[in-house]
Design a protein around this nucleic acid. Structure first.
Length: 809
RNA sequence: GCCCGGGUGGCGGAAUUGGUAGACGCGACGGACUUAAAAUCCGUUAUUCGAAAGGAUGUGGGGGUUCGAGUCCCCCCCCGGGCACCA
């Protein structure tokens, strides 16, 4: 052992871990199981820094848990359906499958080159027949349980990607893939009924294990629960009525108008009876032309048209005018509102503009709140509300008015969610075909399970026009009805790739099962995932969909737990040049080059060291020099230490042995808490201490020498496994991964001396190297003697043993 | 507007329960080695007054609690992220 040849060492150990199945869980074990999962990547071809961070963190956990005696399941796979492969196929003609599998191979090589341990025998890929067969199988189960349905709906259409998008994939009116403006289109599309689980998805967040607060908050926002009342309003002089939803039933006496969304289903009838139908017609046409995004953002200025009709306020019988306005959205609540300008700012703005009456019905307790300049939206007590006057708005007031509505059969209390059903149809080729068949006689029929998978057909032209490229394959479309055998036609849309990733963590447990998607016993034994690790960009989409899948599968008796991921860790993004790394910006840093110049261990250490792992951070080339330097120095130190003369009975090493012990304590604590940056700094400190020791010592006991080398290798192993394994093998001739994580010697943690801080009135005045465990009187004596202090001047002395003494007076 | 995070040297960031603010690393500066450079090694590095000893100031701003506050409480400002005409 002399020179630190990291390239040789790293490839040697990577081969060793693979040849020796160093990571292989006993899937049937019931004890000390630990399912450690990193989000499987889209196979873009190259690892980027985000992957490196993700898989390094995951690997630290894997190795740390193994050494702590856990039976660790650590699988990896590929989210391998999706647009880029298809777009490449359109450009180059290469089949998406070929394209994808080449990229998978390349990325897999890089993951191995990073030194991350995965049980590759369990590898899954969303695009493989073995996998998507079961995606289709689950889809059919969802369909049979009425959790998948097809309907006409206004949907988000990306003209550039030529496909529809889920609500979750529209960011400020733009496509989250290509940034083009998303249009609204009316199309017949497949949906999964995630809304059925709105309440449970929300509730689950408070019962789940350790999840980042921001992720929970984002899901909470997205689900958007609001509680209130729904009641019906009758159009005066007609049989027509419509429902409105409000979270403020307490303000009902303040309703001075009502508003329908221009898309409201009652619009036809209203046009025939309204005295203002020409203008109404114009307004509705106009609203239709604007995209949803335009309606929301272009002008906050509210517009609307008076229908000339009136509705009756059910609590006091007063007629109020009925308006049409596009600030009321058709896809939230009932698409109609009671307008209370006194206590809702939007209604207030509208009322001011169209000179509609504004009544105050809530006042703060001091009765000073005014609605002169703006709506009063706070809590308070009811006024101008008949027999409900003086009740507290948000408690009794709401309750009593809802009670009144219920008693008179006008309305009920009601909870509304923002969460919409999940639109999963995609008019694209490279995805999982939707396994349903349209039969003229039998209607929509699922493909017979025996015939799964419904294979993606080979086609020549991947371009989609307005429908899926699958529609071009006559062979694919034409089939027979599984029910009656007559000629029938297949669905041609493929599924959103988020469907594939909503259950892959289940398949890993039983990835080779030929008869079903997974074995319930195995899945129930291993799930929920003990530790899930991935980027915060999936906070809503993937994590919410997966939670929904698990709940749906549970209700269909496929599994018996409620949440897929017990603990979640979201790593922050790595930026470069002040913004997110992306190929289009040309600001990427290629991790692979560092394998050659600095080595995987140095890269891993740097990525762990650069910042707390949940923070976003700026890439900095100088930093990796630092961790490389540390590894070199560490290597040198071990050489010097191993050659140090052995002399039993020498006491020189007491202090360095204690420092190693302190590091065991500190590194363990930091790893337990995902504080990898400080765990690395602990090791750097220890290495510096070791350097100092080696400079000043000529001999060491054999025991101490072994103890230092053994433990320093163990502590380094989760984070820099190659170099640690090499040194350990060289010195002990053993496989480090089979070594147990050390116990802390709690009796040897404290240094025998400390730096006493002497304060006068809370200000530091002196410090002094002092023995630990002294009585206050002894410390006072030191102050008296050494610093010439007159203790009688002070009227109070505060002594914190082994830390500080503060003289007050 | 609402909901989450944050704000500490030139930079990334450390600081058990309130107890020496700035660990560790990067960068910078000075020195050694070298013909020279790189690498390596040694030292300095919050600001400020001072020749030094030693002071003073300092964790976004302002108040407060405390012997003692980066840490706890109140008010305000700024940055990042999410949601948003959601009734």
């Amino acid at each position: 052992m002399n020179e630190y040849k990291f390239q040789e060492i790293e490839s040697k150990w990577q081969k060793y871990w693979s040849d020796n199945d160093s990571i292989k869980c006993d899937i049937n074990s019931k004890e000390k199981n630990f399912y450690n999962l990193c989000m499987y990547p889209y196979p873009s071809g190259d690892l980027h820094m985000g992957h490196i961070r993700n898989y390094t963190i995951g690997d630290v956990i894997t190795r740390y848990k193994i050494m702590n005696g856990f039976n660790v399941l650590s699988p990896m796979g590929w989210d391998s359906f999706g647009l880029p492969a298809e777009n490449a196929a359109i450009k180059t003609g290469i089949h998406p499958k070929t394209f994808t599998e080449e990229r998978i191979q390349n990325m897999k090589d890089q993951i191995i080159r990073l030194g991350s341990l995965y049980e590759w025998d369990r590898e899954v890929a969303a695009h493989s027949m073995d996998y998507y067969k079961w995606t289709q199988y689950i889809f059919i189960k969802l369909y049979k349980n009425k959790l998948a349905y097809k309907k006409d709906a206004p949907v988000n259409w990306c003209g550039s990607c030529k496909t529809v998008l889920a609500n979750e994939q529209v960011i400020e009116g733009n496509c989250d893939r290509c940034d083009s403006i998303v249009d609204q289109k009316n199309l017949n599309q497949w949906f999964l009924k995630i809304s059925e689980y709105s309440d449970e998805l929300l509730e689950g967040l408070s019962q789940i294990g350790d999840w980042p607060e921001n992720v929970k908050a984002m899901q909470q926002n997205w689900i958007g629960k609001s509680e209130g009342a729904e009641f019906s309003l009758n159009i005066d002089g007609t049989q027509l009525s419509f429902d409105v939803f409000t979270t403020r039933p307490d303000t009902l006496f303040g309703m001075t108008f009502a508003v329908l969304s221009p898309e409201h289903p009652l619009m036809k009838e209203i046009l025939t009876i309204s005295s203002n139908s020409v203008e109404l017609q114009k307004y509705i046409e106009n609203a239709k032309k604007k995209s949803e995004f335009e309606r929301m953002s272009l002008t906050k200025e509210k517009t609307g048209v008076d229908t000339g009709l009136f509705v009756i306020n059910p609590v006091n019988g007063q007629p109020v005018s009925l308006w049409i306005a596009d600030y009321v959205l058709i896809n939230y609540g009932t698409g109609a509102i009671m307008a209370v300008p006194g206590h809702d700012q939007r209604d207030y703005d509208f009322a001011k503009k169209y000179k509609i009456e504004i009544i105050q019905v809530i006042s703060d307790k001091s009765r000073e709140s005014s609605i002169e300049k703006e709506a009063y939206v706070g809590e308070g007590i009811l006024i101008n509300s008949g027999k409900f006057d003086n009740l507290e708005s948000h408690t009794e007031g709401s309750k009593k008015i809802i009670q009144f509505l219920e008693e008179n059969n006008i309305g009920t209390s009601k909870t509304t969610f923002r969460l919409r059903d999940w639109l999963i149809s995609r008019q694209r080729y490279w995805g999982c075909p939707i396994p349903l068949i349209n039969c003229e006689k039998c209607g929509m029929v699922p493909e017979n399970e025996k015939n799964l998978p419904v294979l993606l057909p080979d086609i020549d032209d991947y371009k989609n026009t307005n429908e899926s490229p699958l529609a071009k394959s006559e062979e694919f479309i034409n089939t027979n009805c599984p029910e009656c055998g007559s000629k029938a036609i297949r669905e041609t849309d493929t599924m959103d790739t988020f469907v594939d990733s909503s259950w892959y963590f289940l398949r890993f447990v039983d990835s080779k099962n030929k008869n079903k998607p997974f074995d319930a016993k195995k899945v129930n034994n291993w799930l929920p995932v003990d530790q899930y690790i991935g980027g915060v960009e999936h906070a809503i989409l993937h994590l919410l969909y997966s939670r929904f899948f698990v709940k749906a599968l549970r209700d269909m008796n496929y599994l018996n737990f409620n949440e897929p991921f017990q603990n979640l860790f979201s790593q922050g993004m790595i930026n470069f040049g002040g913004s997110k790394m992306s190929k289009s910006k040309g600001n990427t840093v290629d991790p692979e080059s560092y394998f050659a110049t600095h080595g995987a261990d140095a890269l891993r250490l740097y990525i762990l060291f650069m910042a707390p792992p949940s923070d976003g951070v700026e890439w900095n080339d100088g930093g990796i020099e630092g961790t490389k330097r540390f590894l070199n120095k560490f290597w040198e130190n071990i050489i010097i230490l191993s050659k140090l003369k052995e002399l039993d009975g020498s006491n020189d090493d007491e202090s360095i042995v204690r420092k190693v012990n302190q590091s065991i304590n500190s590194v363990s604590n930091h790893l337990d808490k995902f504080e990898f940056n400080t765990a690395v700094s602990d090791l750097m400190k220890l290495n510096n201490d070791l350097s100092d020791f080696l400079k000043n010592s000529e001999n060491i006991s054999k025991n101490s020498k072994d103890m230092i080398i053994r433990n320093i290798c163990i502590l380094l192993f989760p984070m820099a496994p190659h170099i640690a394994s090499e040194i350990y093998e060289d010195y002990f001739n053993e496989d480090l991964i089979k070594t147990a994580w050390p116990e802390v010697d709690t009796k040897n943690l404290k240094d025998p001396t400390y730096e006493l801080v002497i304060q006068i009135n809370g200000k530091k005045r002196h410090t002094r190297e002092t023995q630990i465990g002294l009585e206050q009187s002894e410390v006072e004596e030191i102050c008296k003697v050494e610093f010439d202090m007159n203790l009688s001047e002070f009227n109070k002395i505060i002594y914190i043993p082994d830390k500080i003494i503060n003289f007050v007076g």
